[in-house]
Nucleic acid binder design. Structure first.
Lengths: 226, 226
DNA sequence: GCCTTTAATATGTATATACATAAAGCCGAG
DNA sequence: CTCGGCTTTATGTATATACATATTAAAGGC
């Protein structure tokens, strides 16, 4: 007697071999349940998993149809730098370069969906692996959206936020650029060297939280598992 | 009477306010079900959703505990370049630069977990947006793992694969590098310009499928929603 | 013919119940 | 004291049933 995972796999395979073409309706849950000899709830679980994976689209009364362009959604885990470094067997440390209140620059404000000049805390951090520069972090934090701040010389901003502020939405951007002077100096690399930059904006229940710009040392690879 | 989504939200909130600290056990399903006045299955659905989101970790017998480091999971949509370009209101096209059988180079073989020299199809493609170079794609395809191939001059490899081969696992790597000669020539940029490279390996039920190396035009940003 | 109301239907959720499975912890044999 | 097996327990899955909800399709009124 098949379990829901086997049914999910079976249906996925039947879609793959084009038994049901993209855009076509697949049989209803009742019908599939009878075919597979299981309860409807079991089929429901299986098909729902495929829907969450983006392979089919479901609508009440209208039934379930194979997605036209099965844009594959995969879950990826966003690395926490300390973990990433330690995972490579290296020793993590960080240096707080500066932390001071100020107004948001226009471009950062735009990304956070806040007015330019909005009160913020600007934080600059250098992340180290085995004592050598690993990444340079420029961050703007919206104090209105987070609990009272701890002493960021002792715990890294990133980690404190991850542990203390729930994120409800956000965006991650990867880009390559010639190292900017500030980052190049902090990372002790030649200005203009190609660096991988990740920009992250996050928002929580009380509004936009933070914008981070992370410049990695040349040669760094950001690794995501599907 | 609360539904599973309300219970999920309630538990998430109780975690946020530290009623249960990171690493701590939360009450069992039976207990929560009694507290909320619902059936265990309803609580199960709610907590399972939180587990899938990475906020809690569940283990049989050991119970459910709040994740120490709630490693955030983002949904990554394996980008179909055509869609991405068209989504920006630009016209997509591609040119198949070359496609020929050959043995896998050692470094690619290693990434695919196949022996060096394994039979493969090497494909080079240039993606265009509004007639201008957008990205350069170097791909190795494992013919043993996919159905018979179509004519790749008519449909892009990427799109055909996404639509026809189920992916069960894989890896995505982002890095920045000075443009290699081949990519620089194809993209019509200065050699040495900083380019964003994404490398992707995917494996399906019949083994490793493909390794793709995509060099984007300078200034390109890869965007992921959380 | 067109708009509104109503019925039919596929998926969504909730429930009680039962058994499966994994793993922690206990306990006895050696 | 250590190892292996047994028990216990929390989560995982399956089932039958019932009702909710969204949406389409049909029926009816104008």
């Amino acid at each position: 007697m098949p379990g829901w995972e086997e049914i999910r796999d079976s249906v996925r395979e039947r879609i793959r071999v084009r038994e049901w073409a993209p855009g076509a309706l697949i049989p209803g849950e009742e019908r599939l349940a009878a075919d597979y000899g299981v309860a409807r709830a079991t089929v429901n679980r299986a098909i729902r998993a495929l829907a969450e994976a983006g392979l089919v689209e479901r609508r009440k009364r209208a039934g379930t149809r194979v997605a036209e362009l099965p844009t594959r959604r995969a879950r990826l885990e966003i690395p926490v730098i300390r973990r990433e470094v330690e995972g490579q067997g290296r020793i993590y440390a960080f240096r707080l370069l500066s932390a001071r209140p100020g107004g948001l620059p226009a471009e950062v404000a735009a990304r956070l969906d806040l007015p330019a000049g909005h009160a913020a805390l600007a934080i600059e951090t250098l992340h180290l692996a085995d004592g050598r520069p690993h990444a340079h972090e420029a961050r703007w934090l919206n104090p209105a959206a987070v609990p009272p701040l701890p002493d960021f010389a002792r715990i890294s901003v990133n980690e404190w936020l991850v542990a203390n502020v729930p994120v409800v939405s956000g965006e991650v951007v990867f880009l390559a650029e010639a190292a900017l002077p500030a980052a190049a100096a902090a990372l002790a690399i030649a200005p203009g060297a190609p660096v991988l930059v990740t920009e992250r904006t996050t928002a929580g229940p009380d509004g936009p939280i933070t914008f981070v710009r992370l410049s990695h040392v040349p040669g760094h690879r950001v690794n995501l598992r599907l």
